[in-house]
Simulated scan of single mutants.
Amino acid sequence: MKPSIAIIGAGMAGLTLARELAPHAELTLFEKARGLGGRMSTRRNGTHQWDHGAQFFTARTAAFKALLSPFIDRGIVAEWQPNITTLSPAKPPFKRLWFEPHYVAVPAMNQLLKTLADGLDVRLQTRVGRVAQQQEKWQLHDEHDRPLGEYDWVISSAPLPQTRALLPAPQLGHNALDGFAMQPCYALLLAVDDAALPVWDAARVNNSPINWIAFNHRLPGRQRQVGAVVVHSTPEWAAIHLENDQEQVKQRLIDHFCTLTGVDAGAITQAQLHRWRYAISTEVAEPDPGFVMNEHGRLAACGDWCLGGRVEAAFTSAHRLAGALRTRL
Rank of each mutant, 00 (worst) to 15 (best):
K114V: 05
N175C: 13
A285I: 12
V263P: 00
A176I: 04
Q111W: 02
A181W: 04
A108C: 01
A18E: 06
Q246F: 09
I72S: 06
F94D: 12
R130Y: 15
I240C: 13
I8M: 03
L242W: 11
P89I: 07
D73A: 15
A238G: 06
I268L: 10
Q270P: 05
D288A: 13
T163H: 08
R34I: 01
Q183I: 07
D118Q: 10
A267G: 10
M293G: 01
L116S: 05
T115S: 11
E243I: 07
D145N: 09
L260Q: 13
L67A: 02
N216G: 10
R44W: 11
Q270S: 09
L67F: 14
A191G: 12
V311R: 00
L148D: 05
L242M: 11
A105V: 05
E236T: 04
I76T: 14
S41G: 13
T58I: 13
Y278W: 02
L197C: 09
T61Y: 00
R146S: 11
R74C: 12
V229N: 12
A59V: 01
Q162M: 09
I280E: 00
L29P: 04
A265L: 13
R130S: 14
R74A: 00
L113F: 02
I8V: 10
T327M: 04
Q162V: 14
V263K: 01
T86M: 06
E236K: 06
R204F: 15
V131P: 05
K250H: 07
L36A: 02
G46S: 12
S88P: 09
R310T: 13
R127W: 15
E312C: 02
A63W: 10
A132Q: 06
A239D: 14
L167S: 04
R44C: 11
I155C: 07
L260I: 03
T126P: 08
E312N: 12
R96C: 08
K137Q: 15
G266H: 01
G262L: 12
P184Q: 10
W138Y: 13
L177M: 15
P289C: 12
A66L: 05
Q135A: 15
P159T: 13
F94P: 04
N294M: 02
T259G: 03
L160I: 05
A22T: 09
F215T: 06
A25T: 10
L172P: 06
A214R: 06
V104F: 03
A301H: 10
T47Q: 13
D142F: 10
R44V: 15
G14L: 02
T269M: 11
Q134R: 01
M109F: 13
E283C: 03
L36V: 11
G303E: 01
A187T: 01
G227M: 05
I84Q: 08
N110M: 08
L21Y: 04
I280N: 08
N294A: 09
I254M: 09
P198R: 00
M182L: 06
A228G: 03
I8W: 08
G35V: 14
L321S: 11
V205F: 11
L140Q: 15
L140D: 12
K137F: 01
C302I: 03
R164A: 03
P287T: 09
P93W: 00
G290P: 01
P235D: 08
I76L: 14
H319M: 07
R320W: 08
R123V: 08
P168K: 03
A63G: 11
G308N: 10
S41A: 12
P23G: 05
